[in-house]
């Protein structure tokens, strides 16, 4: 697939990379239909965010059509049209049960890096440095969405993409606690 890769300060390129795959049972793969560049992408572009590495795929405002789901994903199926929020949240930790999604305890695989910088780790983010999880972002043809039961907001009306895309920087789809626990 084609993806927008951060290759260094003021150096962003559209490159051909591998397609994303389902890596965990709560993952979903989206085919991106619209994605936006955020003001906060400028911090990355200008090189102000530590732990960005060449090759990182950018993009945290995106929407698309569900292409594939992991076997524990219960509320999405192939063909659903969804907007995905910036913050990745598990839905099961104490912060998620209080809807403080951006403080999720369980979605940052590089939590030790964020601890070093902030004192305590928050949730993982799409396309926003290794410290924030190192997840590949959505300025690409396809994206992997972890914990897809929790974040994605289904768009079942005929509103055009441009009218709903910007929910991605704010809104969390999930409103009740996940029932996907062991």
């Amino acid at each position: 697939m084609k993806a927008v890769c951060w290759m260094g300060t003021s150096d962003v390129q559209t490159l051909t990379v591998e397609d994303p795959a389902i890596l965990n049972p709560h993952d979903a793969i989206l085919k991106i239909t619209r994605t936006a560049i955020c003001g906060s992408d400028l911090h990355l572009y200008d090189g102000f965010i530590p732990t960005m590495e060449s090759g990182d795929i950018l993009g945290h405002e995106f929407m698309g059509i569900v292409e594939d789901v992991g076997r524990e994903v219960t509320n999405l199926q192939r063909g659903d049209r969804v907007v995905v929020p910036f913050t990745i949240a598990c839905g099961d930790c104490i912060f998620c049960t209080k809807k403080i999604w951006s403080a999720c305890d369980n979605t940052n695989p590089n939590a030790h890096l964020m601890e070093a910088a902030y004192g305590y780790s928050g949730s993982g983010l799409f396309g926003y440095s290794h410290m924030m999880g190192g997840y590949a972002g959505g300025q690409a043809q396809y994206v992997r969405v972890p914990f897809a039961n929790v974040g994605p907001l289904k768009i079942e009306s005929d509103l055009p993409d441009e009218k709903v895309l910007f929910l991605s920087d704010r809104v969390h789809g999930r409103r009740k606690r996940s029932d996907s626990r062991r």
């Binding site: 795959a21 890596l23 965990n24 049972p25 990182d56 598990c90 999880g133 997840y135 972890p146």
Partner: peptide, 18 residues
């Protein structure tokens, strides 16, 4: 214990690392 999986980024796509 809380979610039934361990978050991972190994195996996801990326451009050349240099």
């Amino acid at each position: 214990a809380e979610t039934g999986e361990i978050p991972r980024i190994e195996g996801q796509p990326h451009g050349p690392r240099r």
